[in-house]
């Protein structure tokens, strides 16, 4: 993707590595050499199986990594400011410039505080508004995320409202201060499909309003619906990246292809092909390509050499040694 050198992307992650320290064992690599760019008004979907390091990446950006995890390399820049190098900038950005929407809305909300107060807290703390003003703003915001009867709902506790409604509350909290960057970690996974649709529409409205969105999911259907750009992760590393439509229509990487083939399709019953094997043990990662042990096209070279991200077309890249041959085979 070409762009003028002067234009700073909203979020720029470069060479990020995160490891988990374990007691009496070697540290575990959760994310390795990950790069990702998100622009204003654009939705980047990070797609991958459970355990691929998607959520760890999200937490690293927000500075919410657990105590035993730490970033060992790389930079995370928000509007050019390196958040990893400057913890104060990270603290200042949280809530105001970047916000996060969590997967499980029930556990993400304080169980003993009314949902309206949890939203109003954003205005009270960040903007110093009075209780009444903050409350009015919170109700406005609840109306904006399409919560019916917000005056009454504001007085509810999280356990008293439905999952879809709770997720809207979590989103309202995140967008309260109009942050430029939104990170959503599987925000629709716990919801049923119709509710999921409403939440995705809400995210689309937010990106159209100019927010940059990093959307984490394992659900290819959700990715297809919302993504402008896709980053496919596997075992802590990026396998493939590119514009959503192209990646989903013509995947370059054998992993992406396998992932797409594993999705059940209503027009092709029985055609679902699960990927054989499982994720590599993060404590004992293969020396070569991380996907090689499960890849039908792997050669001896693949198990020895770790491929770099390589670009075949402008704006797209894939980490595969046999990428040219794979494309050649596909073309036939």
């Amino acid at each position: 993707m070409t762009m003028p050198a002067s234009e700073t992307p909203l979020l720029e992650i470069q060479g990020l590595s995160v490891e988990f320290r374990a007691r009496r064992a070697a540290p575990v690599q959760a994310v390795q050499d990950l790069s990702l760019t998100a622009r204003a008004g654009e939705c980047v979907v990070v797609l991958g199986e459970s355990g691929s390091g998607k959520s760890v990446t999200a937490k690293a950006v927000m500075g919410l990594l657990e105590g035993n995890a730490r970033t060992t390399a790389g930079s995370i820049r928000l509007d050019g400011a390196d958040l990893l190098a400057d913890p104060a900038a990270m603290r200042a950005a949280r809530g105001r410039d970047m916000a996060m929407v969590f997967q499980d809305s029930l556990s993400a909300l304080n169980p003993v505080q009314r949902v309206g107060d949890q939203i109003a807290e954003m205005f009270r703390v960040h903007q110093g508004l009075s209780k009444a003003e903050a409350r009015t703003r919170a109700i406005e915001l609840m109306r904006q995320v399409a919560i019916p009867d917000p005056e009454r709902r504001a007085r509810s506790y999280p356990h008293q409202i439905s999952g879809g409604m709770r997720q809207r509350i979590v989103i309202a909290m995140a967008i309260a201060l109009k942050p430029r960057l939104l990170i959503a970690d599987e925000p629709t996974t716990a919801l049923d499909v119709t509710v999921q649709k409403g939440i995705l529409d809400l995210f689309r409205v937010l990106t159209e309003a100019g927010a940059g969105l990093v959307f984490i999911t394992h659900d290819i259907g959700v990715a297809a619906e919302i993504a402008d750009h896709i980053v496919v992760m596997y075992a802590g590393s990026v396998m493939e990246t590119g514009p959503a439509r192209e990646v989903l229509a013509r995947p370059h990487h054998p992993y992406t292809r396998a992932l797409l083939a594993s999705v059940p399709r209503i027009e092709r019953p029985g055609a679902r092909t699960p990927i054989p094997g499982g994720l590599p043990d993060p404590a004992d990662r293969p020396a070569g390509c991380l996907f090689a042990p499960r890849c039908p096209l792997a050669t001896a070279d693949c198990t020895a050499t770790r491929p770099e991200l390589e670009s075949l077309e402008p704006g797209r890249a894939a980490a595969c040694l046999r990428i040219t041959e794979v494309q050649h085979v596909l073309a036939q």
């Binding site: 927000m62 919410l64 949280r94 809530g95 969590f102 909300l109 703390v125 979590v170």
Partner: peptide, 13 residues
């Protein structure tokens, strides 16, 4: 707990 993580993500001191 998750809601503590939420509070930190909200930028609460």
């Amino acid at each position: 707990a998750d809601f503590i993580r939420t509070a930190i993500a909200k930028g609460m001191p």
